[in-house]
Design a protein around this nucleic acid. Structure first.
Length: 447
RNA sequence: GGCCCAUUCGUCUAUCGGUUAGGACGUUAGAUUUUCAUUCUAGAAAGAGGGGUUCGACUCCCCUAUGGGCUACCA
């Protein structure tokens, strides 16, 4: 058995059991539509779209709901009120037609849904759906769905809740075609709702809400484009984990799970019945968890293209080491570069707020003393530097915060990053010395 | 309007008749910290409303309210 996933505009295709080729498709659908016709479960309708909208408007103007049902079908130009010859003549003349399902009157349709249990609908509330159109020789979704799934021996139909109202029709179709014994089981999944709770999340929402709705950048031919979660800096594993938790839970407190764990724990009866609102904050948190626990080599791979764009030469080992230092500060993959830039490029400017706060009093003087100490060192491990610089601070009774933040300003240009000693060890002695010299040279003198 | 589905902290959810209604995100307060983060601790925060059934209901049934979906010769 195989699994077919039908996304949006697709009549399901492909797979090892695909029973028809493209060129034969419409004939196959027509064949089954005609079979329904022969059984009296369907009929030809010759009314035009214009005629229909006219009738619809007329009804609505009177405050009546319009439905193409058992009441109105006799008032329209259909094969139900024509002789067989008339019908044949119309078709022979090339009159466009549509084949509609003849929904029976007042019949309780009892359905089973794997998530919602039993659902009962009276057929009188349903209308006669179009199954096949002569105009383009194409079936509608309803016919195509039933025919395809039957021929492909589909065992489970798992789709969004928006399809639940069509389920009675599909049941009737399986019934009329005589396929009830092998009809698939159905599960209607809850919808993903917008964060503000106003309606289901759809692709048209694009960037409007400040986050992606596509996994990947979406660029249709009409020139539109919508960003994707990948471009926004989400890891594929985190994205899937986030999606899995929308409308499903493993039943215990686990939230961060590998694909294998999710596959292992998944079952349709743990899928919730109500729509789930997408929460961008939680999505970001999940992604952050994945980044914090990601192997450094993987993160280095994500960072690599940006390094190349900026003409930065660095060994894999160095990049991985940098990733180890920054990853717990990152929420998105796109944070990696801003967080790591100073490990690759010396600061060219200094954060004005930090300068205002720390580049004053004796701080620059103490930075000069640190410079001398670092210059004199022959090895540059974080622990050695920590030892000597703390010694300086303690012996002279200097303010820890002032001294260290001034050093950080010189090394990073801002108030961010790992421990100053880790930064210096990573940069190495000569680079650290050069950055301190730069700061002393370029920042204004103080008294 | 009609039909269908749903309803536990702000959000995602656990609970499958008896619990101090649990967890997570977010939020608040505190601790750690040379910065930014991380991490840790603590707190506030929920069964839509009304009827039943039952010894007992968040859990089962009905009504109402609210939310969502569908109501195309789209999927």
């Amino acid at each position: 058995k195989w699994c077919g996933i039908v996304v949006d505009e697709g009549v399901s295709v492909g797979g090892p059991h695909d029973p028809y080729r493209q060129s034969e498709r419409s004939e196959i659908y027509l064949k089954y539509a005609l079979e329904l016709l022969a059984k009296g479960d369907a009929y030809y309708a010759f009314d035009t779209a214009d005629e229909l909208t006219a009738l619809r408007k007329e009804k609505e103007a009177r405050g009546e709901a319009f439905a193409y049902n058992f009441e109105v079908r006799t008032q329209l130009r259909t094969s139900l009120n024509m002789s067989a010859q008339e019908v044949e003549q119309l078709i022979a003349d090339g009159t466009q037609y549509v084949i509609r399902y003849k929904m029976p009157e007042n019949q309780e349709i009892v359905m089973q849904d794997l998530i919602r249990g039993q659902v009962v609908v009276n057929s009188s509330t349903l209308d006669d759906k179009v199954l096949y159109k002569s105009m383009d020789h194409l079936p509608t979704y309803h016919l195509a769905n039933i025919v395809d799934d039957h021929l492909m021996e589909i065992s489970h139909v798992i789709r969004g809740e928006e399809w639940l109202p069509s389920l009675p029709l599909h049941y009737m179709l399986y019934h009329s075609l005589g396929w009830t014994a092998t009809q698939p089981e159905f599960a209607h999944l809850p919808l993903i709702l917008k964060p503000d709770g106003k309606g289901k999340l759809s692709k048209r929402d694009g960037d409007k809400l400040g986050f992606a709705v596509f996994p990947l950048l979406w660029q249709p031919e009409n020139g539109d484009s919508a960003r994707g979660f990948r471009e926004d800096g989400f890891l594929p594993e985190a994205f899937i984990n986030m999606l899995a938790l929308l409308g499903w839970s493993p039943g215990d407190d686990r939230e961060i799970m590998t694909m294998d764990e999710m596959v292992e724990s998944f079952s349709l009866d743990k899928v919730s019945r109500s729509g789930a609102r997408f929460d961008p904050d939680k999505a970001r948190w999940i992604n952050a968890e994945y980044i914090h626990h990601a192997p450094n080599a993987l993160l280095a791979q994500y960072l690599e293209p940006t390094l190349r764009e900026n003409n930065i030469q660095a060994t894999d080992q160095y990049t991985e080491h940098v990733c180890a230092l920054i990853k717990e500060r990152a929420t998105l993959i796109t944070d990696l570069w801003p967080l790591s830039k100073f490990y690759f490029v010396a600061p060219t400017e200094y954060d004005a707020k930090v300068v205002a706060k720390f580049w004053k009093g004796d701080n620059p003087k103490h930075l000069g003393e640190i410079l001398e100490i670092v210059r004199a060192m022959t090895t540059f491990t974080a622990s050695e530097m920590e030892a000597v610089i703390h010694e300086l601070i303690q012996s002279q009774g200097l303010p820890m915060g002032g001294v260290m933040n001034t050093l950080r300003l010189a090394l990073v240009g801002a108030n961010m990053g790992a421990s100053c000693f880790d930064i210096m060890e990573t940069l190495g002695g000569p680079e650290s010395v050069s950055r301190i010299e730069n700061a002393l040279e370029r920042l204004p003198k103080t008294d």
